[in-house]
Simulated scan of single mutants.
Amino acid sequence: MGENQQPAPFRPDQMRVSHDEREAVVERLNTAAAEGRLDFGELEVRLDLALNAKTYADLVSLTADLPPEIPVEPLVIKGGMNGAARTGRWRVPAQITVYGGMGGVKLDFTQTQCRLPEIAIEAHGQTSGVTIIIPDGWAAETSEMNPGLGGFKDKTTSERLSGTPWIRLAGSGGTGGVVIRHPNSWERRVQRRGGV
């Protein structure tokens, strides 16, 4: 390099992308196709480009003509008198607050597809308790839980698969208690049969 030559200015769009960033664009493209924004041919071409992208510039053009994603608001679930449940396929936000109330709450993540790196859950067992079911391969950090009178049970394993969310659980067991666990044998059978 000569004395008067300056290095080329750094361009952020030329930075290398990670596998997770490619996967996020793939998920966004699949969602756009499901909404009817892309036909199958367009989807196929864009998916191939996304999976082979090297830089941010390669990825940006693939979603530039799609509307921005709307962030999912924090979720608050209250058991009230009759109880409440969030099961099946549902959109998981990064923050969830759960109150067991008189009827209890069941929070089941086993059929969700979640790419968040972390989910913060604040659970209060109150009178009837809270049960949280996470898929095999997800792991939870539960040191911030206060057992209260009803207690707290962590029946999860510490084995976490790559690309799965880390659950950060805090709150109090109240009188009804809080349980976090993986699916039981009956729930696994229902999943294998494709039931809800």
Results as ranks from 00 to 15, higher is better:
L51N: 10
P67K: 06
S61Y: 02
A53T: 05
L49C: 02
L38V: 03
L59G: 04
Y56C: 00
L47H: 02
G41R: 13
R37M: 14
R37Y: 06
A64E: 12
L51V: 07
L62M: 04
R37W: 07
N52H: 15
A64I: 14
P67C: 05
K54I: 15
E44R: 14
A57P: 00
D48P: 00
E44V: 04
L47N: 02
L49V: 00
V45D: 12
A64K: 12
L47D: 03
K54A: 13
L47F: 05
A57W: 04
S61M: 12
E42S: 10
D58W: 08
K54Y: 09
Y56V: 04
K54F: 09
G41N: 12
R46K: 14
E44M: 10
D65C: 00
Y56A: 00
A50Y: 06
L38K: 03
L51M: 12
F40V: 10
A50M: 04
P67F: 05
N52W: 10
D65K: 12
P68G: 07
D65Y: 06
L62H: 07
E42A: 10
L66S: 02
L38I: 05
V60S: 13
L51Q: 15
K54M: 10
L62V: 06
E42V: 03
D39Y: 02
G41D: 15
L66N: 03
A50Q: 08
L47V: 06
A53Y: 10
N52P: 01
R37L: 15
V45L: 13
V45F: 09
L51A: 06
A64D: 11
P68A: 14
S61N: 00
G41W: 07
R46W: 10
Y56H: 13
R46T: 02
R37T: 01
D65V: 00
V60A: 14
L59E: 05
T55Y: 08
S61W: 01
A57D: 11
S61H: 03
A64Q: 12
V45G: 01
L66R: 05
K54R: 13
D39C: 03
A57S: 11
A53H: 08
R46Q: 05
D65I: 00
A53V: 05
E42L: 08
A53E: 07
D48S: 14
L59A: 02
A53Q: 05
R46Y: 08
T55R: 08
A57F: 08
V60R: 15
N52V: 02
R46E: 04
N52D: 13
L51P: 00
A50K: 05
R46C: 03
G41Q: 13
D39T: 04
A64S: 15
